[in-house]
């Protein structure tokens, strides 16, 4: 980008890039807001999210597609159908226009592929050093059908825990590109919009679905701990049933990470009544984003709300809810 700390010329230029990339009937009206039709008789679901990722481009995606997928997924996890997105961009002065074009293009493509338009947006250019390249803030709305009330406090002992596929891909893709790690097979981010998969799951399991969550930052470990606390239950997860790609396992071994704590951007965990588990699993496996879905464990009664990994050895290793990064603990 040539110049313009808020200067009209550059700001207009930036705004135009996104208008071109997202073009749709609401955005094209050029208003400061979008006026939208909503299906009647359904409850509105709304979310907002911020995206700061380094590097901005990574194997399998970039900050733009990630922002679309992440926002859609947060809505979809309520069992809802996402309808509209908004996006706001903080761009650092001096950021290459070509890169901005790429981000906008990928974001537009992701939004079109998902069928969820970006209906309103904003751009700000800030001084050099006041941002790290590009930050994106989004909001999203969707609707949830009558009778579907997914919530993190609804897991009950005996429920089945289903994971939609391989874990750790996104985090490892990011770290690999940061460190220029090379593996025989490149690890790609799993960044994907899950609302199609969710729609199929809701259709198949309906009210038997207790809750769903996408294990993003903090990985599967953080998500299961959140659900355990919200529902006041424990989880017993069969370590061997959790799908981890060999190359992800190898990268984690090198980096000293546990894949359970590594971020995902295209996976979900579902807690479902036991009788619906097999049916749900079949439906998920029939969907491209749930092909590797697996039953990974069960909800158990546990006043201490432990998430335990059980191995073939029978021992129950607690999967902690870490305060931050994985600090060494072996003395």
């Amino acid at each position: 980008m040539s110049h313009g700390s808020g200067g009209r010329a550059s700001a207009d230029l930036v705004a135009q890039i996104f208008r071109d990339a997202f073009a749709n009937e609401w955005l094209d009206q050029g208003n400061d807001q979008a006026s939208l039709p909503l299906p009647a008789g359904q409850r509105l679901v709304m979310t907002t999210d911020g995206y700061v990722v380094s590097p901005l481009f990574f194997p399998g995606g970039d900050i733009g597609s990630l922002a679309v997928h992440g926002t859609i997924n947060d809505i979809a996890m309520a069992g809802a159908r996402p309808l509209y997105l908004s996006a706001s961009f903080i761009v650092e002065e001096g950021f290459p226009l070509g890169d901005l074009d790429r981000i906008a293009g990928s974001m537009g493509a992701a939004s079109r592929a998902a069928g969820v338009p970006v209906v309103t947006g904003d751009t700000k250019v800030v001084e050099r050093g006041k941002a790290d390249g590009v930050f994106i803030s989004t909001a999203g709305v969707g609707v949830v059908p009558e009778g579907i009330t997914l919530s993190g406090d609804r897991a009950r002992p005996g429920d089945a825990v289903i994971l939609s596929g391989y874990i750790g891909d996104h985090g490892v893709a990011i770290m690999s590109s940061r460190e220029n790690l090379e593996f025989e097979t490149a690890v790609l981010s799993d960044s994907a919009a899950l609302h199609g998969l969710v729609a199929a799951m809701v259709a198949a399991a309906g009210p038997s679905l207790r809750t769903m969550r996408d294990p993003t930052r903090g990985g599967l470990a953080a998500t299961l701990n959140e659900l355990a606390h919200q529902s006041g239950v424990g989880f017993r997860i069969d370590e061997e049933a959790v799908p981890v790609r060999a190359e992800v396992a190898a990268a984690c071994e090198l980096l000293g990470l546990d894949p359970l704590y590594v971020a995902n951007e295209g996976k979900l965990v579902a807690v479902v009544a036991p009788e619906a588990a097999e049916r749900l699993l079949a439906v998920m496996r029939a969907h491209p984003l749930g092909r590797d879905a697996a039953l990974i464990g069960t909800v158990v009664a546990d006043e201490r709300q432990f998430v335990q990994m059980t191995t073939s050895f029978g021992g129950g290793r607690i999967v902690d809810w870490l305060s931050g990064e994985q600090l060494p603990r072996i003395c």
Partner: peptide
Amino acid sequence: PLPGGDRAAR
């Protein structure tokens, strides 16, 4: 350096 954190101890 402590490469791999706790893994280095094992």
